[in-house]
Amino acid sequence: MTRNRLYLFLFLGLIAGYSYVLWESYVRIFNHPFTPCIFKNTTGIACPSCGVTRSVLLLMHGGLTSAILMNPLGLVVAAIMTITPLWLLYDVSFKKNTLYNSYKKTEKVLKTPWIAILFFILIAANWAWNIHKGL
């Protein structure tokens, strides 16, 4: 993936993510039970990322423990949603490639077999926990 394509993808993803968090905040205020998760709507079983948005919302309201218990992946998403816009702005403003270079290094590390297996095991464990909790 080229630098410009990655940065555009991240920018659009951040806009979508922030829009969804704002929309979800609005929906939660009125206790609307809708979930856009196609997997859960089809199977009735929580997907590995079920609860991430609720986790981010809990974190935004200062509920660190509640956010972790809802879905620990929410902390990762919140960190990405906080750091990435600033990093993008820095790279674009100063014509740097620091985010792109970090992306390429991370991509290489994640392709290491034992790291990929560990990552898969952690996601599977989180999924089992989501199902156990009845999300």
Score class of each variant (00 low, 15 high):
Leu73Met: 15
Ile115Glu: 07
His61Arg: 14
Thr112Glu: 05
Thr106Val: 10
Met1Gly: 08
Pro113Gln: 00
Val77Ser: 08
Ala124Asn: 01
Ser66Glu: 15
Pro36Gln: 06
Asn71Asp: 13
Thr65Leu: 15
Cys50Thr: 02
Phe9Gly: 07
Thr112Lys: 02
Met1Cys: 08
Asn101Trp: 05
Lys108Tyr: 08
Ile121Leu: 15
Lys105Thr: 11
Pro72Gly: 05
Leu89Ala: 14
Ile38Cys: 07
Leu10Ile: 12
Lys105Trp: 12
Met70Lys: 09
Val76Leu: 15
His61Ser: 12
Phe11Arg: 10
Pro72Asp: 08
Leu118His: 05
Asn71Phe: 06
Ile117Gln: 08
Phe11Gln: 11
Gly62Gln: 01
Trp23Lys: 05
Pro36Asn: 04
Thr65Gly: 05
Ser66Cys: 00
His32Gly: 03
Ile83Trp: 11
Leu64Tyr: 13
Cys50Arg: 01
Lys108Val: 01
Lys108Gln: 14
Tyr26His: 12
Ile121Trp: 04
Leu8Asn: 04
Leu69Gly: 00
Leu14Tyr: 13
Thr53Gln: 00
Asn130Gly: 10
Cys37Pro: 02
Leu89Ile: 07
Leu88Cys: 07
Arg54Tyr: 01
His132Glu: 10
Thr35Asn: 04
Glu107Gly: 00
Asp91His: 01
His32Asp: 14
Tyr100Arg: 04
Phe30Lys: 10
Ala125Tyr: 14
Gly44Ile: 03
Gly17Phe: 09
Ile15Gly: 06
Ile15Ser: 11
Ala124Lys: 09
Ala79Phe: 12
Ala128His: 07
Thr65Ser: 12
Met70Pro: 00
Gly62Trp: 06
Val52Tyr: 04
Val76Met: 12
Lys133Val: 14
Thr84Trp: 07
Leu14His: 09
Arg3Thr: 04
Met81Arg: 07
Gly63Trp: 01
Leu122Val: 06
Lys133Ala: 13
Leu86Gln: 02
Arg3Ser: 08
Met70Asn: 09
Val76Trp: 13
Val21Asp: 00
Tyr18His: 15
Thr53Pro: 02
Phe94Leu: 11
Ser102Asn: 13
Ile68Pro: 00
Ile29Ala: 10
Pro85Asn: 08
Phe119Asn: 08
Val92Glu: 12
Cys47His: 04
Leu22Tyr: 11
Asn130Leu: 12
Asn97Leu: 06
Gly51Met: 01
Phe39Met: 01
His32Tyr: 12
Pro113Ile: 10
Leu89Lys: 07
Ile131Met: 10
Tyr18Glu: 05
Leu110Arg: 08
Phe11Ser: 15
Ser102Gln: 08
Lys95Leu: 11
Gly74Ala: 11
Leu73Tyr: 12
Gly63Glu: 12
Ile29Tyr: 08
Met70Leu: 00
Lys40Tyr: 07
Ala125Lys: 02
Arg5Thr: 14
Ser93Gln: 06
Lys96Ala: 14
Trp87Thr: 01
His132Trp: 15
Trp87Cys: 00
Val77Gln: 05
Ser19Lys: 04
Ala128Ser: 09
Ile68Glu: 05
Val56Ile: 15
Leu118Gln: 01
Leu99Tyr: 10
Met60Val: 00
Gly17Thr: 05
Arg54Pro: 00
Lys105Met: 06
Ile131Ser: 05
Pro85Leu: 10
Glu107Trp: 09
Tyr20Pro: 04
Phe119Pro: 00
Lys133Leu: 15
Phe39Asn: 04
Asn126Phe: 03
Ile117His: 03
Ala46Glu: 02
Ser25Ala: 09
Phe39Glu: 01
Asn31Met: 02
Leu64Val: 15
Leu6Asn: 08
Ile68Ala: 13
Leu89Val: 07
Met60Ser: 06
